[in-house]
Design a protein around this nucleic acid. Sequence first.
DNA 1: AATGGGCCCAACCGCGACTTT
DNA 2: TAAAGTCGCGGTTGGGCCCAT
Length: 277
Amino acid sequence: MVEKSASNGDGGEANKERKGLWSPEEDERLYSRITRHGVSTWSSVAQLAGLRRSGKSCRLRWMNYLRPDLKKEPISKREEETIIALQKSLGNRWSVIAGRMSGRMDNEIKNYWNSRIRKRQQNTSAGGKDGGGFPVQGDLLAVDATAFELSPAGEQKPVSREGTTEAPPPVPARFPLFACQLLGSGLDEGHTAIANAGTTPSTTTHENNGAGSESEVSVGEDGRGDHYYYRAGDGADMDMVHFLSFDDLLDYSAGNLLVDAWDQSAVYCTNSGSSAD
DNA sequence: AATGGGCCCAACCGCGACTTT
DNA sequence: TAAAGTCGCGGTTGGGCCCAT
């Protein structure tokens, strides 16, 4: 499908639209054009930059490759966990998932999912797990997607992804959100705690997407400042939980909550009812 | 060193949604 | 209100790289 441009050379038909891989010169033209003049419409960008590319192609190139805020490094384990969690909750809504991750584009996430995670999932299923074959212990379980769409007092306005200079929304000192990831066995799939914790310690309920039931948990500071503990009301079933600081959840450069922030260092055992270091 | 297979990723396509005229 | 233009999304493809043989 990807037609490796036979007419790459300038000696080709002048009006023919180019396809295939982008040359460094084309990248430079597009980058310069957008950084200096912004984007009115993508088709005009192509014209004004002197590119024989469709507006669509220009948009894709900018969004997936040239944008200065894109992360170039490989997707981390944390990001992978985030992708898994959000895909489970949101399905293949890659643009929405990408919108919740800093510096990643839908295409990249989609490719990552299709080439690695999905295959691993298939392998896991083939390996004897029934049903979804997913998740496995340690994975983030079924985040309630709506929990990540909290819009505190309308502070989160949509942010254009089109390379505009629009200022990000104001940053509250603390975001009233807390989340934790279950690491151990004992709870049904779907347990993820997302709690309002404007005043701590507080008590709230945790979501149970799988079974639909709720039980009470307590939420409070762990004494280190930014981390919060999570304890099931019955205090018996949960082996380990995984904590996030509020700050970790935020990524205001993207104007969205950042879920890619599981704090690997903050794992606590609560089986005995006491948090451990 | 050659080659074949698998994997990764860039980029295209089709289509629906949205905006403008 | 309808038509045309544009954008954005998800699915898919195929070239190139890497690794095992």
